[in-house]
Amino acid sequence: MHTESLKRQRRNITIAAICVVVGLLFALPQLGLSVYFMHTLIGVFIWIIVANSLRLLGLSGQGSIGHAAFMAIGAYTSAILAKFLGWSPWITMPIGVLVTVVVGFLVAVPFTRVRGIYFTMVSLFFGIGVLAVNQVFNKWTGGYSGIISIPRLFAYIKTPYYYFCLALMVICLLIMYRLEHSRIGLTWKAVAQSYSVASSIGINEAWQRILCLGVSCFFAAIAGVAYAHYYVILTQETFSFNTSINVFVYMTVGGAGLFAGPIAGTAVLLIIPELLRDLREYVPFIYAAILLIVLFLMPQGLAGLPAQLWQLIKRPARAKRMASEKEVGERAP
């Protein structure tokens, strides 16, 4: 009946809610946010960009567990240029992103040969390979101990970083959202559903997958350079296999099927352990418990929880209706 107006109404509510949340995030430093929590939130903003870029890659059916490698390429390029050549971070950051995108497009070409779980394996070993290369060039990258005292973007206060990363995240998310709902995003989804059908209707399947990896690298690299010049230290552990897996977990736990999924997953999985940090070595148990709860109880992930709850509220009514219909059906013949 009024589905069209209802849909518009729901959309308006969503937009309003997003505006309120973003506005609140922008206002937080003025409302007396502690420096420590600001630090946590900056991390959340950076990892949200990465988790969403991973989801963008997943749109074309490519699941990666080596995505931190692309962050690493951008971060190390920018950090080395800024530290050893003394260039301004504002110049080296775009260079780092550019280098990553070029590398992304280059490696994507052979990567199109494999699909599904094999792509995942290739991405895993690409990630480990980048770390191994990082070891070989330890004169520049510092190997295990890493690079320290990378030039900063701003002085030692956190507030400008907070605004910078928040703005970066909002812009990246907007672009990714538009991209997903554009013609390109639809093409990627078609490729993910069935590459043979997609190529039969004239989609250059291989090129679309290369493009998707390249675009995803672009966002991962943005997060990577932001990371490098905020934390000012990069070590072997920063972009290790564990990091890639963590990003993958953020995305899946949040709900890979929804745009809000990686955002919810990253926020919950980064902030809750931070709030419970008094438990120290027991924190991984909390983390694992969240993962298990989501796995067994929320098939759509954390972001699908509202819809799930709504279903739960509606279900008794529907169940009652169905029961009465069944009763009628049984009586009828």
């Binding site: 699941g63 567990i65 897996i245 993958f248 977990v249 899946t252 736990v253 890979a256 694992a288 993962l291 298990l292 989501v294 796995l295």
Partner: peptide
Amino acid sequence: THMIVMAIA
């Protein structure tokens, strides 16, 4: 994908 998360847990 869920299996990977399970393994991580």
